[in-house]
Design a protein around this nucleic acid. Structure first.
Lengths: 192, 192
DNA sequence: CTCGCCGGTCAACGGCCGTAGAATGAACCG
DNA sequence: CGGTTCATTCTACGGCCGTTGACCGGCGAG
């Protein structure tokens, strides 16, 4: 009997409002960073009152935590070559899609100490997995460097909007970065 | 005459206070970013009153501008190989020295839109110079990528404090990054 | 010596922000 | 139908911040 075209039930309405708030929050956190984002601005962008945001999410900190949850993209293991290529396609996707969510995380991680802690905790297992695929004594450093390159490129493209990087095609970027990723993911440059 | 051991003249005293304020500002901007840094905190760290900071620098924005002036490190041209190596040693230095100034810029550029604009303007000539040394059609993209890698590594080491990168030696990092830089600075991988 | 200049302090204002809590009215359930 | 729950709004409080302007006291020039 849940007629979706009829007047929405209360639960639906709530979910809808929460989603609108989260969308607005992601957008504004991404654009402004944690500190400059105000609950009132998020609420107004979502078309609700600020009190409702507090009511649903408890605090600005918690709203941010929910807004910057990221589904932890897959990073299938395999040979180091495969891992490098997987990283590259993941980067390519993040350079193509609307990167709002990534940006909210990125900008806020660099702004907010708590966000940095939470992000580090979330990223560490992925980095460990990456390091395991590389399997050299300095694998963790190599994995961290790969992560640093990915984030550096995203930040410089979307946050700093550096000319030459802001308007390059994802494919071009990925192609130029491929040797980098290979040299970091594999102990030595393999000559076929 | 100007006996430096005697009681300081008024001009000396003023310069000294300004310097203390700027030092404190750099430290706190680097640690907290633009928004979370308060004029009162800077003043208190410098041992003066907040009003004095306003009196000398006019506004928080202007104080930040003065505190984040950076002497634009040398980037001598040459062959692309030499440029890559110069970038690597520059990075090595920034990984060794107390990176307070770099951090203030880095953190604030990612926080403050005006800071980003100013930084982009300051960095563009350097990137152009770099691109000129690379001299391929996509040289500007290559130069931007090199810059992105440098900043990504700095950010991930000092801002995010990623394990594996935070406690690696500068030499190790530079060595691992060398193939990356070479592949970006030279059109094709040269096989000796 | 005197008086103006200036380094420096102090108290206050106005604004914005996160947050709390009461109030309202419509949806739900028995 | 009556009571309860709940989505939502409104109002207000307390705090912190950037900024201002009055004020003080010692240095330095005439």
């Amino acid at each position: 009997m849940t007629d979706s075209s009829a007047r929405p039930t209360r639960a639906q309405q709530r979910r809808r409002s929460e989603e609108r708030i989260l969308d607005a929050a992601r957008r504004i956190f991404a654009e402004l960073g944690y500190d400059r984002t105000t609950i009132r601005a998020v609420a107004s962008a979502a078309g609700v009152d600020g009190g409702l945001v507090m009511h649903y999410f408890g605090s600005k900190e918690l709203l941010f935590a929910r807004a910057s949850e990221v589904p932890a993209d897959e990073l299938p293991g395999g040979t180091s070559d495969e891992v490098a290529e997987a990283l590259l396609t993941s980067l390519g996707k993040r350079l193509t899609d609307e990167p709002t969510a990534s940006l909210a995380v990125l900008r806020s991680v660099l702004t907010n100490a708590d966000a940095a802690d939470r992000y580090r905790a979330a990223a560490e297992p992925q980095l460990d997995q990456l390091a395991e695929a590389i399997s050299t004594p300095d694998a963790d450093l190599r994995a961290s460097l790969l992560s640093a390159i990915v984030h550096g490129v995203l930040a410089e493209r979307y946050l700093l909007r550096l000319t030459g990087l802001a308007d390059a095609s994802p494919e071009q970027i990925v192609d130029l970065l491929r040797p980098c990723f290979q040299s970091l993911a594999t102990p030595r440059d393999p000559n076929p």
